[in-house]
Structures are given as structure tokens and as C-alpha cells.
Amino acid sequence: MAYILTAIMSGGVAAILSLFAGEAWGQIFLNYVIYGHVGIVVLAVAQVLAGIIDRRLDTQD
């Protein structure tokens, strides 16, 4: 669920900024899709890195 919400929010912000910049509808949709996927990737990488760091901190005790 967090991945979907992140995609909607990050893609939505990119689309709104494109809309305010006066871009065409195709560019607005493209920004929504591309930056939505970038948001998902950033969240996934952060989750994996947090898991790795957490496991390393647990084994140090």
C-alpha cells in the first residue's frame, strides 16, 4: 500500500508542477508515470537499506 501511495503522491506532484508550467497533456501524463515509478524505486531502496542496516546493528550486540 505504501508503494502505491508513494507513486500517486510523487507522480501527482510532478504532474501538478508540469500543469502549472504549461506543459501539454502528454507531458503531464508522462511526468506522472515516470516520477511515480521513481518514487516507488526510492521507497524500495530505502526499505532494503533500512533492513540491511537493522540486521547489521542487531548482530553487533
Results as ranks from 00 to 15, higher is better:
G51H: 05
G22V: 06
V42G: 04
I8T: 05
A2L: 13
G11C: 05
M1P: 08
G36W: 00
Y3L: 08
Y35N: 07
G51I: 00
T6F: 03
G51T: 00
I4D: 00
A14P: 04
A2V: 05
A50K: 12
S18Q: 14
W25R: 12
I8K: 05
Q60I: 08
L57S: 07
G11W: 00
G22C: 10
F20R: 15
F20Q: 14
S10K: 01
T59D: 06
I16D: 08
D58I: 08
T6W: 02
A24Y: 13
V38S: 04
A24K: 15
H37Q: 07
R56L: 13
A21T: 03
G51A: 06
S10P: 01
Y32W: 12
A14K: 04
A15L: 09
Y35C: 03
L30R: 12
V42P: 01
T59I: 14
T6A: 09
E23W: 08
R55D: 08
M9S: 08
L43M: 11
G26M: 09
Q27I: 05
Y35D: 01
A14S: 14
A2P: 11
G12Q: 03
L19T: 06
V45I: 13
S18M: 15
L5N: 06
S10F: 10
M9L: 14
G51E: 11
I52C: 12
L49R: 10
